[in-house]
Design a protein around this nucleic acid. Structure first.
Lengths: 68, 68
DNA sequence: ACTTTATGTTATGAATAGTTAACATAGTAT
DNA sequence: ATACTATGTTAACTATTCATAACATAAAGT
């Protein structure tokens, strides 16, 4: 089985008026880490995915979208 | 910000009549990895969390539960 | 033109997810 | 009692996430 996913972080940051750095500070990671995640550079941890989703006021599936 | 979560994997395995090894095979990890995740030994990747959720016929938030 | 703010990108290193193998235990079946 | 199935646990190893620093670009303001 395989699961690919993309994300709506950039779009939801704009909606919540947050820079990459703002979001990074909220979830205690580096700005570069947010940038890399937005671009799909790596498969982040579930804990971080939950933190990002909360910081963006969304459910996890509304931020990270499984491709079909 | 911090997010702690637990999971219902063991319960949902039973419901779907899957052993740890069955589930491990479905999502291409080791049996021990499933065991460790069930016991909360580590913060698994989002991709694996999606695979496990699908294999258990559930949404990710119905498998991994954020503590409040 | 110069500065400031937001983001892109790359390289190196540290921390941790997941592998592999090995052995232990408990439950169930024969 | 013995064998088989499912799970627990541990230790050492590999792979990948995330940290950190450094430098680059583009846009907006002064």
């Amino acid at each position: 089985m395989d699961v690919q996913y993309s994300n709506r972080i950039k779009e939801l940051r704009a909606k919540n008026d947050l820079t990459q750095e703002d979001l990074a500070n909220k979830v205690n990671v580096r700005r570069e880490t947010i940038g890399h995640i937005e671009k799909g550079k790596y498969n982040l941890s579930l804990g971080l995915a939950f933190k990002i989703s909360r910081a963006l006021n969304e459910n996890i599936e509304d931020v990270f979208i499984v491709d079909d």
